[in-house]
Amino acid sequence: MDSQPRTQTDVDPVPRSGRIRVAVVFGGRSEEHAISCATAASVLRTLDRTRYDGVGIMTWCPSAWVLVPDDPDALEIRDGRLPQVEDTGRAVIVPLGGVETVWRAVGPDGLEDLGEVDVVFPLLHGPFGEDGTIQGLLELADIRYVGCGVLASAAMMDKHIMKVVFASAGLPVGPYVVIPDVQWRRDRAAALDAAKALSFPVFVKPARAGSSVGVFKVDRPEDLEVAIDKARDHDPKVLVEQGIVGREIECGVLQGRGTDAPRVSECGEIEVVSGHEFYDFEAKYLDEDSVRITAPAQIDDEVRARVQEIARTAFEVAGCEGLARVDCFVTDRGEVLLNEINTMPGFTPFSMYPQAWAASGLSYPELVDELVALALERPLGLR
């Protein structure tokens, strides 16, 4: 097992073409399947085919991982239509490590070799992908991959555990109440009393979901129970967060090379300008005109430095690798509160994470290249 980080020059040999083989894994079983497809479309279109060879394109259908056509256009959100990847009948067999390193597919024509893969780019959002599950599979198979490892992915996906970790490190988090499934079923009244002790409005959200799926703004205590039941349709564990009046400021974090400190981007700001009470799923993906993303954000230097400091610290406290986006609230008094961290943020060129890095001088293609290079540099096994 490797004891020292590998560099891009001493990783396992790339194919004879000299190009790096990247398997893009996207789709997934969560409610964010369509968003993952849109993210994959952007990455696939951006990958420089003079540098990257034999790009395996796989997704998770209900029955299996499948090999799908290299067609980014079919994966984009167009005219309000969310993409959906269908089962192609070509099931992918992931090698389990050791002497077995060749990826294969089983289809109507039998078994076909897909060759070896140098790095996996997992572009899955939500449960069963972003939450440490696919990361664990790849770790077991000794396959390098882009992004955070098992623990950081799992802990940061669960907004309750995330807040516990950050609060224990002295990072500023807002007031909240967690309602586990067993508590809701055992004593609903007590759970409601705890949540109603927060100042309204509150936001009710699934503890382990993203893209604002199943998130509800509640202005009155009498509407809280219905909102919790609706959020439970997405996750039996629910968080109730006290609403914070302030600006939503976000910062991208990129792992440093070798032993270098994590790099932080310019800050960006998200503003809902029409049609939505908050930055919900429709505002994010289906009604672009209702939202304004500004990078760099128009904030004073002291606030910018504080957000960047919190972002870098959160990344290190969580044990993140590769990339993460850290979301903060900045109140009218200039107080900065940590909202959450996203270990696989939206990754189209129009998403906040790439825009924040573009404002920092790192273009979208350069960002993709850097993430692949970081994955190749990372050692296998415990680190």
Rank of each mutant, 00 (worst) to 15 (best):
F203S: 00
R304H: 09
T46Q: 04
D300W: 09
A91N: 13
G115C: 11
L137R: 08
R78E: 09
R378Y: 05
L376I: 14
D12K: 01
L82Y: 13
M344R: 00
A324V: 12
R21T: 15
R81G: 03
G258A: 08
L44G: 04
A38N: 15
P122E: 11
T7H: 06
C320V: 11
A189V: 14
A297L: 08
D70V: 13
I249P: 01
S363Q: 07
D287F: 05
R29W: 11
V215E: 07
A305T: 15
I57K: 07
E302I: 11
T88S: 15
A190K: 10
G28H: 13
V307G: 05
I35V: 15
V303S: 02
A189W: 04
D158N: 15
P201T: 07
L138F: 15
L192E: 03
G115V: 13
A38H: 14
L151Y: 09
I77S: 02
V291I: 12
Q183S: 14
G149K: 02
P349N: 06
D332N: 05
G27Q: 04
D70T: 08
L362Q: 11
A261C: 00
G18W: 10
V43I: 07
I270R: 02
L123S: 10
K237G: 00
Y52N: 00
A227P: 05
G256C: 04
K205A: 04
E139I: 02
Y145E: 02
F203P: 03
F200E: 07
A231C: 06
P62C: 06
W357I: 08
C61A: 12
L75I: 09
Q355D: 01
E250V: 04
P180G: 02
A356T: 15
V14S: 09
D113F: 06
L138G: 12
A359S: 08
R49G: 00
V182M: 06
D280H: 00
R104H: 14
G98P: 02
V253Q: 09
G126I: 01
G54Y: 06
E269I: 12
R6E: 12
V317Y: 11
V146R: 06
D187Y: 08
W65A: 05
Y176V: 07
R19D: 01
V25G: 01
C61D: 00
D229E: 15
G129P: 15
G334H: 13
T46L: 03
S30Y: 07
A314N: 02
C37G: 05
R45D: 15
C267V: 12
A23L: 14
G136P: 13
L171C: 07
I310D: 05
E266T: 04
V92W: 02
L123D: 10
P180E: 05
G149R: 04
D2C: 00
A231V: 04
G170A: 08
R186V: 06
A373S: 11
P296N: 02
I57N: 03
L171K: 14
D187R: 09
D142G: 11
F329C: 01
P175M: 11
